[in-house]
Write a protein that binds this DNA or RNA. Structure first.
Lengths: 324, 324
DNA sequence: TTGAAAGCGCTAACAC
DNA sequence: GTGTTAGCGCTTTCAA
């Protein structure tokens, strides 16, 4: 391997000078700069990132933990985060947790070991004690972890209300909402309360169906949909995560229930999946790009020592579709 | 930062002994092992990955380059690759290229700089010269890069035939296939030829619509669908990538064309998106899990010095759906 | 403006 | 079995 010393030798300068040239630091005379650049070119020298990392005590790597990378919501989030981090000079390492027992734990240990400078944590973990006493940069994505960890999330309160208001003019009699597991501590849980509150005030019956914390497979959603129609045959409105609503549309079609005539549907999240079917699904849209921007911004500024300011919930919007 | 020396000092042993204990290497007496472990615990010492990397000249990090992380096909691929790499003790770094001008170039440079040990390259790059003379471990995912780079891909020849055979019994008169840009050098291109061949042999007219190399947004596919129905009003069969077929279903529905009665649809890829709509889309399914497994296997064995054996195309399957 | 030298924290060859 | 020592390749004072 050709190292900085080889370059120095060939250019007849000191390694430190080569370092200065390569990093555009300090003052280097035009003539030595040229010499160094020539030597670099001649040897086609490429500096070692590992050595640099050790010396600087930095990796410029940020880890992103999510329950399931391939889920449209997280996939889009990761895409956006990766772009934002790249802009700021950081690399993105990913980790999907639902398929791997305690990968989250392993990942957090990597943070300790300085494999990365910080992490954006969005997994649906149930064991939060692994974060206790950790002083490394961590930003939570739509998750409560502990008091020291700032959290980036959408304004789920408005989200719940927005969804409820979408149903209101249609005077549904019986709405069922599908929700994730309550045991997962996420600010997203408030949207259910806001939803129920707004609708029950208006006199609508609302029932709730809770899913498992690790349900991400389309199969899981299909089962839930079947279950829902069996348990509540008179349902005329459903509110739930994108994929759950997709499954409900399928099952409704199979049972001859017409959407939106006999059944109103509103999805929560509003990922692209609500826009690729035959009907556009009416949905509360989480601002994934904005969330990703904030997550990237907060984690990198923490890595650089700047304390994170308080974060206000990011605004959600309603996507007018064909299903409600 | 507490280092291996501090542990050694506290345990009254040499740093190398601590290293042996930590890495479960060589022979260490039970008694000194205990001493070391106690010291580690007392100092809550965590070894530095950066120092280890430099010393071992290894990062245990694999980069995965794709055009678009959030696309269902790539999102699923990355999920599977990440799981497979994790099993083998590697971390996964991702890079999405369509949004970032020459990120691919930057990424390949990271390989040179030893930021990662190897990369799995699946981007739709048009400039392949950046790979010339690169001797680092690279495995191409469904892309031709150059002679030295092994390639993991599905059996697209069978894929094209399988799709054609799905149409055959329905005796379509005019089938249109939507394809990616020909300028992207991918083994996937053969499926179009196999498709046309099989159908024209049977006397069916087949037209082809080519999309831009960087088309990944649902919007792009919707435009293509509109264009298709305008240009070929008599079309009664469409073959194309999952998202293109989704868009065609939407546009067909808007125009009152019934699927499958008046229009047969077959998708290529068969990602989960073909399974979340009201109708299951008939599709040729690429074995994403298998592809990911092979990609992970080949890149890690190359990193470990074992030469990659030749790879045979991985088998595809047909998903019987409601659309053909 | 440049060079010498001391790390960064770990591993591994080689003695003992 | 365990310790000594010399790196891995870079950055960064501090002198000159």
């Amino acid at each position: 391997m050709t190292s900085i010393k080889d370059v120095a030798k060939l250019a007849k300068v000191a390694p430190s000078t080569v370092s200065l040239v390569l990093n555009h630091k300090g003052y280097v005379s035009e003539i030595t700069r040229k010499k160094v650049e020539e030597a670099v070119a001649k040897l086609s020298y490429v500096p070692s990132e590992m050595a640099r990392n050790l010396s600087l005590n930095r990796t410029n790597m940020i880890g992103v933990i999510v329950p399931e990378i391939s889920h449209p919501f997280f996939a889009t989030f990761i895409r956006e985060v990766e772009v934002e981090l790249y802009r700021r000079g950081y690399k993105t390492m990913v980790c999907s947790t639902v398929q791997k027992a305690n990968a989250e734990h392993a990942f957090v240990n990597m943070l300790r070991r300085q494999t990365m400078d910080g992490i954006i944590m969005g997994a649906h973990s149930l064991e939060l004690d692994i974060y206790d006493g950790l002083s490394h940069p961590i930003v939570a994505f739509d998750r409560f972890i502990n008091e020291n960890i700032p959290i980036v999330h959408a304004d789920h309160q408005s989200g719940g209300r927005l969804a409820a208001k979408a149903f209101l003019p249609h005077r549904c009699h019986h709405i069922v909402q599908i929700m994730g597991a309550r045991e997962v501590l996420t600010p997203a849980n408030v949207h259910h309360e806001a939803f129920i509150e707004t609708l029950t005030e208006a006199g609508t019956r609302v029932d709730t169906l809770e899913m498992a914390w690790n349900a991400f497979d389309p199969i899981d959603f299909l089962q839930t949909a079947e279950q829902l129609f069996n348990k509540y045959p008179d349902v005329d409105g459903i509110f739930g995560p994108d994929l759950a609503i997709c499954s409900c549309m399928r099952v409704a079609a199979q049972r001859g229930i017409h959407v939106p005539e006999n059944l109103k549907l509103v999805a929560y999240d509003g990922t692209y999946i609500t826009r690729v079917g035959q009907q556009v699904i009416t949905a509360v849209v989480q601002p994934i790009g904005h969330l990703a921007y904030m997550a990237a911004e907060k984690i990198t500024s923490w890595v650089n020592g700047r304390p994170g300011e308080k974060l206000y919930a990011l605004p959600v919007t309603l996507q007018k579709g064909d299903t409600c």
